[in-house]
Simulated scan of single mutants.
Amino acid sequence: MQWGYLADAAQRRHEENAARKGRGLKIDKDHALARHIEHKIKTEKWSPAAVIGELCQRGWSYDVRICVKTLYNYIDQQLFLELTNDDLLYKKNRDKQTENSRRGAAWNNRDGKSIDERPEPVNRREEFGHWEIDLVVGRKGTKPVILTLVERQTRKSLYVLIKNKSQKEVLQALRRLQRRVKGDFTHVFKSITADNGSEFLDGEGMKRAAKCGEVYYAHPYSSWERGSNENGNRMMRRFLPKGTDFSKLKPKELQRIEDWVNNYPRKIFGYKSANDMYAAMI
Rank of each mutant, 00 (worst) to 15 (best):
R208Q: 15
V215H: 01
K252D: 15
R180L: 14
K211A: 12
R266K: 08
M277P: 04
F200A: 09
Q255T: 12
D276L: 02
E225A: 05
K272S: 07
S222L: 02
G213D: 14
C212M: 05
N275A: 13
R238F: 12
Y216R: 09
H219T: 02
L240E: 00
G183K: 00
S273C: 01
V170K: 04
Y264Q: 04
K272F: 09
N231C: 08
E204G: 12
E204Y: 09
A209C: 06
K267D: 05
R176T: 07
D195V: 05
G203D: 03
R176V: 00
T193G: 02
A280Y: 01
K207A: 05
D184Q: 04
M236C: 13
D202N: 15
G197T: 10
W224S: 10
Y221N: 10
A173E: 03
K182S: 07
Y278P: 05
Q178G: 14
E214Y: 11
D184T: 02
Y264C: 07
K182I: 07
K267H: 07
L254P: 01
H219S: 03
D259H: 15
R234M: 13
Y271R: 00
R176C: 10
A210F: 11
E258L: 10
L240W: 00
S273V: 01
G183I: 01
N229M: 12
G197Q: 10
Y216D: 07
F185R: 11
E199D: 05
A280I: 02
F185W: 10
M281C: 10
N196H: 06
M236I: 14
R256G: 13
N231G: 09
S222Q: 03
M281K: 14
W224P: 08
E230F: 12
K242L: 03
R237H: 08
T193D: 03
R256P: 11
F189K: 01
N275P: 06
R175A: 11
S198Q: 09
F269S: 04
E230W: 13
K267I: 09
I192A: 04
A279G: 05
Q255E: 15
A173V: 02
N229G: 11
D245C: 09
Q255P: 07
K211D: 09
R179C: 11
N263T: 15
M281L: 09
R256V: 08
V261P: 13
K207E: 07
G243N: 01
E225L: 08
T193L: 03
A280W: 03
P220Q: 06
M235D: 14
N263A: 13
